[in-house]
Design a binder for these strands. Structure first.
Lengths: 230, 230
DNA sequence: TCCGTTTTGTTCTCGCGTTCACAAACTCCT
DNA sequence: AGGAGTTTGTGAACGCGAGAACAAAACGGA
């Protein structure tokens, strides 16, 4: 995805700050590489070539090598990459060597699914709270975590130093939730509500939208059917 | 696909086929415009400028106009766009003026949430079947639809002319499900399993991956914290 | 009818991302 | 030790997308 217009990314950077900045397109692929490396490691693979890893990640090897080159030189020419070493380096670069605390707001069907999603814990995230405005849900346990009132947001963010929030409420409530999150100190939001969120500069928003994905598929599907009569 | 590596898009096009081909980046935004127009129409707005619509869709107006220009000239200079007319034109271009039949495979937590997702019906899709290999789920109703055995896939695809499949099974089962879908005749897949699917040319795959989205946020979050001490 | 105002549709330029192609560097074998 | 074979890391070319800027077209008022 060129540029990646899904993320509203605003970062203040000081001139002295000589941190390599990694292209957004590359950042979006690092998690894929990380997962592929984890799978290789689980399978007992100790070392791999860029070709192998690229295949596992579903990209071509030139792109993979260029992406990795932004992080540094972690391979050995003529040999390949040490799986465990590279895995750690990518995890460190992404920032998932320790767990990030996350709050989920909106415990409907989707919120349930998210709370139960095992990938959270295994991939560098920890759900510290489930919130919902509906008081009939409070005190209920979901995935071993008790659902609390939405108004507890500020307290929870403060106490757990939460930076990432997940919004899985209906569209009409999403902007309000986002506003409260931002004012509580959250600066990265993953939004499942089908609406365009407005947030101040410095806050990152990524959206996941089922109907958009389906409609993109529908477009191509229509093309196939139309282009060549089967 | 250079524009969007999330979709494996292979389309055979005949030389005589003079269908405008719309850039992938534009295709990905059309559903957003469609939604914004629907919201405007619901709010009673009859006509709007590119500026208004762009704001509602969260893009800048130049980009919006350029995107729309790929579809044709549906606006009036000095006036703007007729909301209902433009909405229909975009829906037609995407191919959601009629409903697309969809099957969902994997009725766990996420599958439940997807089955209950109201946006399906309202945005051009119709869930014709819920499938799961776990026979303890069969005969159960989810969102008013009875869960059927995975082995019914071929029959269902044939009888309902299904082109789009949704995969919400665990990662280890996803490739098998995809293979079965493809051989049953499905040519567009929305994959929620955290794995890279391999499919033959001509089949589109889009993936939705929660941990990847979170990890991208984590990367930027780490940067913010590191770059400037709050 | 004519002119000013508004807003679209399009052209142009710039920057980013992808890919190719190759030099550098490492291993292995003789 | 030296050469053949591998594989990484990167410089350069190319193509696509974003945004600015402007010409074309429609409307309204005098």
């Amino acid at each position: 995805m060129p540029g990646n217009e899904r993320a509203t990314h605003v970062t203040a950077r000081t001139p002295t700050d000589a941190v390599r900045d990694i292209p957004e397109a590359t950042v979006a692929r690092l998690p894929v590489y990380l997962r592929a490396l984890t799978a290789l490691a689980d399978g007992g693979t100790v070392s791999c070539s860029s070709e192998q890893l690229a295949t596992a990640a579903g990209v071509n090897s030139a792109k993979l090598r260029k992406d990795l080159s932004y992080l540094g030189s972690y391979g050995t020419r003529g040999v390949g990459y040490d799986v465990e070493y590279l895995r750690y380096q990518i995890a460190r670069e992404i920032g998932v060597t320790q767990d990030w605390p996350v709050v989920i707001v909106g415990i409907g069907n989707l919120g349930h699914a998210l709370a139960n999603f095992s990938g959270f814990r295994s991939r560098g995230f920890r759900v510290v709270a489930l919130l919902d405005a509906d008081h009939t849900l409070h005190e209920q346990q979901v995935a071993g975590i008790v659902v609390r009132p939405f108004d507890d947001l500020e307290q929870i963010v403060r106490e757990n130093d939460v930076a990432i929030g997940v919004i899985s409420v209906p569209a009409f409530a999403a902007q309000d939730v986002a506003d409260r999150m931002v004012s509580a100190g959250i600066s990265s939001i993953l939004n499942f509500a089908p609406i365009v969120l407005t947030v101040p500069p410095g806050v990152d928003v990524r959206k996941v939208d089922l109907s958009i994905e389906l409609q993109i598929l529908a477009y191509h599907e229509q093309r196939k059917a139309h282009g060549e009569p089967v």
